[in-house]
Write a protein that binds this DNA or RNA. Structure first.
Lengths: 212, 212
DNA sequence: GTCTATAGCCAGATAGAC
DNA sequence: GTCTATCTGGCTATAGAC
C-alpha cells in the first residue's frame, strides 16, 4: 500500500528547508501570513531563489498538503484489520482516543491541524481534505467497529453511523480546545485526561449490562 | 440587563451599509479578504469615504464583533431561569438543541459563525470570544441543568461538566458540518434531523430507568 | 460626507548576470 | 542555484478641494 504519492524530497536540501519554513509560517499566519519574503528570509535565501524549486506559492502549499496528509492516520490504524480489535469493545475505543490524543499533543500534527483550520474557510480543497480525514475516514472506521460490537452484544443497538459521530465529535472538540490553548500559551492540564474520560463516559452510555 | 453595549447604528445609514458589506465580505474571505476597496465598491462609495465613519479597518471589525455577539444567545436562554426548565429533562435538551439548530440554519448567524472560524487562528480576541460563547457560556448553563437533573434522579450520576461537554460537542460538530456544506453549496438533507437524533441518543445514554 | 489624488508599504513574480 | 534589480498590482491610510 504505497502511501498516497508523497513526494520525494531530499533531507537538508533547500527545497526541504523551504517547506519547513513555510509550514512553520503557515501554522502561525495561514496561507497569506506566509509570504514568499518571510519564507525566503527564514531559509536564508532571496525570494527569487525559491522559484528555482517551486513554480509559485500555491505549489508550495500543495506540496505541504500532500506530505502532511500522507502520514498521520495511515500509520496508526488504517492498516490493521478492525474486526479483530473491535470485539475488544472499550479497549478498542480507548486505543482510538489515545491515538487522537497523541496526534493532538504531537507538535508536527498540531501544526498540520492548525494550517487546516486556518484555511478551512478560505480554500475548498482544504475543506474536502478536512471532510475526508476528520469526518469520513473516522466515521467509516468507527461505525464498522460499532456495528461489530452490536453484533457481539457488547453495546446497545443503535444507528452505527450516528454512534460513530457521537463518539468522534467530542474528540474533535477536545482537540480543538487543546489547540486554542496552545496558541495562546495557556495550560492544558485541565484537558490532560479528558480523552480518557470521554471514553469512560461513552462506554457507560452504550455498554450492555453483560459487558459492563 | 443591558445587552452588552451594542452600538446604536441608524438603519439605512452609510455606516450601516459599510457594516453590512463588511460582514458579507468577511464571511467569504475573512478579515484580509474584506479589503477597504471591496467594501467601498460594494457600498458604492470611495475608500476614503469610509474613513468618515470608521477610524480604520480594525474599528469596522470591532464593531461587527460587538454587534454579532450581542444578540445570538442572549435572546434565547440567558434570560430565563434554568432551574425551572431543567427538571423537564429531555424536553429541556430538545429545546436547547433546537435553538442551536435554529442558529445553525439562520443565515445571519451562519455568517457570524463563519467569520469567527475564519479568524479563529489569526486573532486572539476572536479566540477569547469563541471560548466564551462556544464553550464557557454553554457549558455553564448545561452543567447547571445536568446537576439539577441528577438531583431529581432524571439522569444517572456523573461529572456535570463532563456531561455538558459531551452533550455540547456534537452540536458544535454538526453545526460546523452544516456550515462546510453550505459554503460549497452541498445539500444538508442528511443533517436535517441530526440535532434531534443527537438528543435522542444522548438521553438514552444518561436517562435513569425511572425517567426513561 | 463624498470626492480626487497620492503616499507608502508589501505582496507575488520575472529577467538576466554570475 | 543564487543573486540583484525591477515590474505590477493590491493594500491601508491621509490631505485637501467641493
Amino acid at each position: 500500500m504505497a502511501t498516497a504519492v508523497a513526494e520525494e524530497i531530499k533531507p537538508n536540501s533547500t527545497k526541504e528547508k523551504i517547506l519547513t519554513a513555510a509550514i512553520e509560517l503557515m501554522a502561525e499566519g495561514g496561507y497569506t501570513g506566509a509570504s514568499m519574503r518571510k519564507i525566503a528570509r527564514k531559509v536564508g535565501i532571496r525570494e527569487s531563489a525559491i522559484y528555482n524549486h517551486f513554480r509559485n506559492k500555491d505549489e508550495i502549499f500543495q506540496t505541504i498538503m500532500k506530505n502532511l496528509f500522507s502520514n498521520p492516520f495511515e500509520d496508526f490504524f488504517i492498516k490493521r484489520p478492525i474486526e479483530q480489535y473491535a470485539i475488544k469493545g472499550k479497549a478498542y475505543l480507548l486505543e482510538y482516543a489515545a491515538t487522537i490524543k497523541l496526534l493532538t499533543f504531537d507538535s508536527k500534527n498540531e501544526k498540520f491541524f492548525r494550517i487546516i483550520l486556518a484555511e478551512l474557510m478560505h480554500n475548498q480543497q482544504v475543506r474536502e481534505l478536512f471532510m475526508q480525514y476528520f469526518y469520513q475516514e473516522n466515521i467509516k472506521k468507527l461505525s464498522n467497529a460499532f456495528f461489530i460490537m452490536m453484533q457481539h452484544n457488547l453495546i446497545r443497538s443503535a444507528d452505527p453511523i450516528l454512534m460513530a459521530q457521537e463518539f468522534f465529535a467530542p474528540l474533535f472538540y477536545y482537540r480543538l480546545q487543546v489547540l486554542l490553548m496552545h496558541i495562546d500559551n495557556k495550560p492544558t492540564t485541565a484537558l490532560s485526561t479528558i480523552f480518557e474520560k470521554h471514553v469512560d463516559f461513552f462506554w457507560e452510555s452504550v455498554a450492555t449490562q453483560e459487558s459492563f
